[in-house]
């Protein structure tokens, strides 16, 4: 009898050991790819960095140049996307948290927003293509910015909604009992308290759109030259990286690595800053 239970015990111990070792191995597996991918980007990217990147234009096939117009295009479109997407996102998040917290409409908007958050960005690109590009008759930086704004929107809605929910209701009640109208309570009391969270949301959205490639292929397209005209095609770093990486030229490959490196550094720094803001807020609240 005891021999059997001894055997059973050993088998259970063995199974446990195997499972835990596998769990550790899975974690190493995940970290392994992270290190490999970042290392590749770092080595190839730093090797390709040079000052010309920032003041020369994207070159014709086979020759050397920089990425100045792509950096500028990405900056312009991302900025406009944030400017377009953030206010609408904050207002919609306010609607969810303050005006429709438990209503059917609020729940369905929250549901749709969460789907929009994970929906393939390529679909949004096609949407803006039929809505803007086809109507205007040509690709444009404006259409690219609108697409990116649609990616910003759900991120900002979600964080605003969650951050406003975290604001204690005593604050609302205190302000309302003084006779302050609700819009003023929202703008001057709640937004102030939720500001770090909302800023984090905007930064996360910025990190997300700076690497977006697919939807820009059908909206902003690309432009080999310097352009400040938002109504015409516009270059962006991810699209240039895509085009150059797929080409057979070595000089283009090296430019693509430089662009990829810059995008990765920017995205990771932005999300680290976003995390730091949230972490500081948590400490301050404790």
């Amino acid at each position: 009898m005891s021999a059997i239970s001894e055997k059973l015990y050993r088998r259970r111990r063995f199974k446990n050991g195997v499972a835990l070792v596998l769990a550790g191995a899975a974690t190493l597996f995940g970290l392994f790819w992270l290190v490999w991918i970042l290392w590749t980007t770092l080595v190839n990217g730093i090797g390709a960095l040079k000052p010309e990147l920032f003041y020369q234009m994207t070159p014709p096939p086979g020759s050397d140049g920089g990425l100045a117009n792509a950096f500028f295009g990405s900056m312009l479109m991302s900025l406009l996307a944030i400017v377009l997407g953030t206010p609408v996102g904050i207002l919609a998040g306010t609607f969810l948290a303050e005006y429709a917290r438990r209503s059917l409409l609020g729940e369905s908007i929250r549901f749709v927003n969460d789907i929009l958050l994970s929906a393939p960005s390529i679909v949004l690109g096609l949407f803006v293509y039929t809505l803007v590009v086809k109507q205007m008759g040509h690709f444009s930086g404006l259409a690219g910015a609108i697409t990116l704004a649609l990616i910003v929107l759900p991120v900002v809605v979600r964080t605003t909604d969650e951050m406003l929910k975290l604001v204690p209701s005593q604050m609302r009640e205190a302000a309302l009992s003084l006779g302050v109208p609700q819009w003023k309570v929202t703008v001057q009391v709640l937004y102030r308290s939720a500001l770090p969270g909302i800023v984090t949301g905007v930064l996360l959205a910025l990190a997300r759109i700076s690497g977006e490639t697919a939807p820009l292929l059908f909206t902003a397209l690309n432009n080999q030259f310097w352009s400040v005209d938002m109504s015409g095609p516009m270059a962006s770093v991810p699209v240039v990286v895509f085009q150059y990486a797929m080409s057979p030229y070595d000089t283009w490959h090296s430019l693509a690595w430089a662009g990829a490196f810059m995008v990765t550094v920017f995205v990771l720094c932005t999300s680290l800053i976003a995390r730091a803001i949230i972490a500081r807020r948590k400490v301050a609240n404790d």
Partner: peptide, 12 residues
């Protein structure tokens, strides 16, 4: 890993 843009995964 989730924050790395997909184009980097593609190039790598």
């Amino acid at each position: 890993l989730a924050g790395i843009p997909s184009i980097i995964y593609g190039m790598w």
